[in-house]
Computed example of a mutant assay.
Amino acid sequence: MGQEGIHLETSLGYLLKEASSELRAAMEAVLRPLGMTVTHYSCLELLAQRPGLSNSELARGAFVTRQSMNVLLQALERDGYVVRPAEGRIGKVLPTQLTPRGREELRKATAAVRSVEVRMLSGMTQEEQSGAYRILQSMIQSLRSENEVRS
């Protein structure tokens, strides 16, 4: 590439991807001893915040395919973390809900993930943290708005 090429060290997109990758690796490291993955944790967190989400909604929220989410939900149900009714109303999706065991495991996982976030932000002042949130939210909104126009 010539001079007009992207320099990875100064590309904001590349740095965001690298930060995302490091965050995921750190989260996986603290969740592994709990027998969880980031996707596993994300699914439980989504269900805690919005009980009864469908497989498709959970998949979108956890950034995985519906097929992957279905496999995960079967495992979570087998392990006693979630319950799904055997049958839904005709034409309705089967609502998934956390069990007491699922809530307890989520509580442990949330504490572990929070420790990673605290470590990630430890070199920043409160003002810098607030600024980072605003900046990232603005970037997401700008990209989302442009993507919606193209759709």
Results as ranks from 00 to 15, higher is better:
1 M>N: 00
2 G>V: 10
7 H>G: 03
9 E>G: 08
9 E>C: 08
9 E>Y: 09
13 G>R: 04
13 G>C: 07
13 G>M: 03
14 Y>N: 05
14 Y>A: 13
15 L>W: 03
15 L>A: 08
17 K>R: 10
17 K>G: 03
21 S>D: 14
22 E>W: 00
25 A>V: 11
26 A>F: 02
26 A>R: 04
28 E>C: 02
28 E>N: 13
30 V>D: 05
31 L>M: 09
31 L>C: 07
32 R>P: 00
33 P>I: 06
34 L>M: 01
36 M>D: 01
36 M>G: 01
36 M>K: 07
40 H>C: 07
41 Y>L: 06
45 E>L: 15
45 E>M: 14
46 L>T: 05
47 L>H: 07
47 L>D: 08
47 L>T: 00
49 Q>G: 13
50 R>W: 12
54 S>D: 09
55 N>A: 10
60 R>I: 07
60 R>Q: 14
61 G>Q: 09
64 V>M: 04
64 V>T: 04
65 T>F: 07
67 Q>T: 10
67 Q>A: 06
68 S>V: 13
70 N>T: 09
70 N>H: 11
71 V>E: 14
71 V>C: 07
71 V>R: 15
72 L>N: 03
76 L>Q: 11
80 G>A: 03
80 G>T: 06
80 G>S: 01
83 V>K: 14
83 V>A: 13
86 A>W: 00
88 G>P: 12
90 I>K: 13
91 G>S: 05
93 V>S: 11
93 V>Y: 13
94 L>N: 08
95 P>F: 00
96 T>Y: 10
98 L>M: 09
103 R>N: 12
103 R>I: 03
105 E>N: 06
108 K>R: 15
109 A>I: 05
109 A>R: 05
109 A>C: 06
111 A>F: 01
112 A>N: 02
116 V>A: 03
116 V>C: 01
118 V>A: 10
118 V>K: 10
118 V>C: 02
119 R>K: 05
119 R>G: 00
120 M>V: 05
121 L>G: 02
124 M>D: 02
124 M>S: 09
125 T>L: 12
125 T>E: 11
125 T>D: 12
126 Q>G: 12
127 E>Y: 00
128 E>I: 09
130 S>I: 11
132 A>S: 09
133 Y>F: 13
134 R>G: 07
135 I>N: 06
135 I>M: 14
136 L>N: 06
137 Q>Y: 12
139 M>H: 04
142 S>L: 14
142 S>A: 15
142 S>I: 12
143 L>R: 08
143 L>C: 02
146 E>W: 13
146 E>I: 01
147 N>R: 13
147 N>P: 01
150 R>N: 04
151 S>K: 15
